[in-house]
């Protein structure tokens, strides 16, 4: 009898089993975030008042563009170096390859605070880099490297290159080897094979990796907070500061709404593009 009930496969059992997780996500994630975003539209000053005042503030628009700029530069650098590294890793012989993958996983499993802190030691006024430069006589004064956009970008690249490497190794390994061999058997030089076969086939994976890094660095908090400080305020640090220091909840909600919309839009648009141009899908 139990078996018969089991065989009657309607969705009810499925719904029942996924209900706790579904309700948790809806109740504690969708509704709270929805409420925060909705709250920005019922402002007594008018429907779009919080947004108008956000974009009227020169400082806040600067923060938005700074955040976008940092995320974009981080993404491009991570793409270039991540792709080159992933290519080498994917070509490495078995044992070495596992070792290289583990070496990329390890920083990923180390917390963001620890990884940002490492750069604090390196880039500080009395940091290792300054000590080295002074000792080598390259500079006579310690350089101000901390709390610059460059410091934030270095920290972010450090954060996201392993992620890029790992996701691209997967992508490159999914490209069938015999397709590359077919290319060279037809007379394509290694360079021609790279440009005409390998790269086009890797593009969907590159897009996915770029989205991961862009959204990750667009919303990162600890790294810009530690390495950028107030001088390099980004959306995430501004959100925290508005909410927990100034108690400006409407302002914080507005920033949250802007971050959510930009992130979701990019994720949806890019994954749509990646799926459309994915030649492996058909």
């Amino acid at each position: 009898m139990t078996a018969r009930r089991f065989w009657r496969r309607n969705g009810a059992t499925g719904w029942a089993l996924s209900a706790p997780a579904t309700l948790a996500v809806i109740g504690f994630l969708l509704i709270p975030i929805g409420a925060v975003i909705a709250g920005t539209f019922i402002d007594p000053r008018g429907v779009f008042a919080p947004y108008i005042s956000y974009f009227n503030s020169g400082f806040r628009t600067t923060v938005l563009f700074r955040t976008l700029q940092i995320a974009a530069i981080t993404t491009i650098i991570s793409l270039i170096f991540g792709f080159m590294t992933a290519y080498v890793v994917s070509r490495a012989p078995g044992k070495l390859k596992s070792l290289l993958i583990v070496a990329a996983v390890f920083p990923l499993l180390t917390g963001v605070v620890v990884r940002a802190f490492a750069w604090l030691i390196i880039l500080g006024r009395n940091g290792i880099l300054n000590q080295t430069l002074l000792a080598l006589g390259i500079t006579s004064e310690p350089l101000e490297m901390l709390y610059t956009q460059g410091a934030v970008i270095v920290g972010m690249v450090y954060l996201f290159v392993p992620l890029m490497v790992l996701s691209l190794v997967g992508v490159l390994e999914n490209i069938p080897r015999d397709v590359l061999q077919a290319s060279s058997s037809l007379g394509a030089s290694p360079l021609a094979t790279f440009w005409q076969v390998l790269l086009p086939l890797a593009v969907p994976g590159l897009i996915v990796g770029a989205v991961l890094v862009f959204t990750g660095s667009f919303t990162a908090y600890a790294t810009p907070q530690l390495l950028g400080g107030e001088r390099q305020t980004v959306l995430a640090t501004l959100l925290h500061q508005r909410a927990m220091v100034s108690f400006d909840w409407v302002g914080a909600s507005t920033i949250a709404a802007i971050m959510t919309v930009i992130t979701i839009t990019i994720v949806l648009a890019m994954s749509h593009i990646a799926r459309r141009i994915n030649p492996m899908a058909t």
Binding site: V179, Q181, A182, S184, S185, L186, G187, P190, V197, L201
Partner: peptide, 20 residues
């Protein structure tokens, strides 16, 4: 000689067509 200079026509088991 590297493969791409050998001038050999190869037909693969899994066809190895360029999907893109």
């Amino acid at each position: 000689l590297p493969t791409h200079k050998r001038d050999i026509g190869l037909v693969f088991q899994n066809y190895a067509l360029f999907p893109h």
